[in-house]
Design a binder for these strands. Structure first.
Lengths: 227, 227
DNA sequence: TTCTGCTGTAAACCTCTGTTAAATAGAGGT
DNA sequence: ACCTCTATTTAACAGAGGTTTACAGCAGAA
């Protein structure tokens, strides 16, 4: 359930929108001016903030500025018609999107969904970080560390190690390694996998003392041992 | 699904653009001259019309005039190089925007989205701003910042970086980069992508200290690292 | 043990990428 | 038309990365 902070002084709109958001499976919190809105935004963690531009006490621009000074929560601005200048200011300050008012709750929720889709990857998304023993691997950064030390791998070496890490503790056949790591089926006398594994091992050995973390399983493939 | 009418006699561009529009979730209809284009526009209801200026039978200006006589459908004009006068006329006649040719499908779709955002704020949700790590990109304004510093990119460099940003954390093949960023399929010995990437990297390196944010994945493509 | 097929690794070889510079193509101005 | 400025593509070469080769060492079977 996504927490949404709704900052707007239009009581009627807020009431309607809050109801609509609840109905659509969100968990909305409400603030009626920029000051208390910003306070809420900073004191709690929200998945998204809906922020009106025109408001008493502290307008949306200043509220956004206050929020952005400390947090990076996605913000969707609600702008009244013809506030074209504000639109640019809003964008420069780092609002993620804007909806021109007047608009229906349906339109707003569509935007909210779009932003959340971007900011929080769906469930089927892969983990950001995979750790096996002393080895930690970040697929989206193509980065590997062995107990804090960065391993300087080439891209193919990284691909192969990634496959092994994802199947840690199980034997991975050369055929699978070739398919997933090199992107082609294993040919009859192809020794590439062996050669790459050899160099990966050498790079790991620089930090691992003695133990062999990548084991060869005769005629079966390779396996990354998990502690 | 937004219905888009595409009126242009450039068969190659139309083919590519149609495909691209479908891919991006639009429902394109095609006409190859002004006369049949205007007929389509008047006989059916579209959310937007893409209209080339230079065409056989009836040019874009006259087609626009014919359409505007009866309908108020948003129109995006495609103008060839140096048709400066035509631009103004086009806008005076009530075109909503124009794109100077040559341009990539990507650029056109960005404009289409911008217009639809104004005319029907709901469905075509597409955030105004995309942030990946220290990098923030505004597709509609064709503007990029690296932690507050504006990156002065050329048009092609921007296109390529935009593609990478939209696929942040995943590898994008040179073939896709060429198609989406340069608007043409990758040829056998084409090194353009590499050269552009090199200069984008240099511009980023001015602000990034040491780390490589655009990684090369040997034989696969490039990947923008995601924090 | 001895034979056979598999694996480890270094080195040769070849392909791909990074980068700079030169050539080409456009756009704007005179 | 011609020149100028800028963006993009092509060309060229150095260097990094990947594959193949070659040979030594190993594992398992007879």
């Amino acid at each position: 359930m996504n927490k949404v902070l709704l900052i707007d002084d239009d009581v009627e709109l807020v009431g309607m929108l809050k109801e609509y958001l609840e109905q659509e499976g969100f968990d909305p919190t409400v603030a009626y001016d920029g000051e208390s809105g910003a306070a809420h935004a900073l004191s709690d963690t929200y998945d998204l903030i809906l922020l009106d531009v025109m408001m008493p006490k502290m307008n949306g621009i200043d509220a956004l500025r206050a929020i952005r000074a400390e947090k990076n929560t996605p913000v969707l601005m609600l702008t009244a018609k013809g506030e074209d200048a504000d639109r640019i200011v809003g964008l420069e300050l780092g609002a993620d999107d804007y909806v021109p008012k007047p608009c229906t709750p349906r339109e707003i929720v569509a935007r909210v969904r779009a932003i959340l889709r971007r900011t929080q990857p769906a469930d089927n998304a892969q983990p950001v970080q995979i750790t096996v023993g002393a080895l930690t691997l970040w697929p989206e950064q193509r980065r590997v560390e062995w107990s804090g030390n960065v391993l300087e791998l080439t891209s193919t070496e990284f691909n192969l190690l990634e496959v092994l890490v994802r199947h840690a503790g199980r034997v991975v056949s050369k055929s699978d390694l070739s398919l997933q790591g090199l992107g082609r089926p294993l040919a009859r006398f192809d020794r590439s996998i062996d050669v790459h594994l050899s160099s990966i091992r050498q790079k790991i050995d620089a930090y691992a003392n003695g133990r062999h973390y990548i084991q060869t399983v005769y005629r079966m493939g390779y396996q990354l041992v998990r502690e």
